[in-house]
């Protein structure tokens, strides 16, 4: 039956419900496991094939040879579009997407990151990430 105020009951019951609003940034949110956030580079795995550089749509990665079988990566998070094609392209799983999404910066240079070999112990790569096909 047509009548005005069809939603009255529903909106009044909303008074008793918990607000649907997510209280970010007061309450932090975590991203799902597959989320494509800030990239991380494991220099010791890199073999310098540069497939990531070749496939990157925005030229956000530069791989440089610093010594024999040693490479470093310059990743510009300001250029990155977070497609994670580099992660898929890499034959040695030297690149990984993290769940970090809070990347806003006032200074563009802070989004540029250089990854060299021998990461600190806390950044030890997990053995073969499970949920990253």
């Amino acid at each position: 039956m047509k009548h005005p105020g069809r939603m009255v009951r529903q909106v009044l019951s909303s008074m008793l419900r918990k607000p649907a609003t997510v209280r970010y940034p007061f309450v932090k949110v975590t991203m799902p496991k597959r989320f494509r956030g800030r990239l991380r580079f494991y220099a010791e795995r890199c073999i310098g094939c540069r497939l990531c550089m070749r496939d990157c749509p925005t030229d956000a990665i530069q791989i440089r040879k610093i010594a024999d079988k040693q490479f470093e990566a310059d990743i510009d998070m300001a250029k990155c579009i977070y497609c994670a094609q580099c992660v898929d392209s890499c034959p040695k799983k030297a690149l990984e997407s993290t769940l970090d999404f809070e990347l806003a910066q006032l200074d563009r240079d802070k989004l540029r990151q250089t990854f060299r070999g021998q990461p600190p112990a806390s950044q030890k790569p997990p053995e073969d990430p499970q949920d990253k096909p």
């Binding site: 991203m31 799902p32 496991k33 597959r34 989320f35 494509r36 579009i81 977070y82 497609c83 994670a84 094609q85 997407s97």
Partner: peptide, 11 residues
């Protein structure tokens, strides 16, 4: 987001 890794531009 859970399936593809992003809310938009799923890749």
């Amino acid at each position: 987001a859970a399936i593809t890794g992003n809310r938009v531009n799923y890749g």
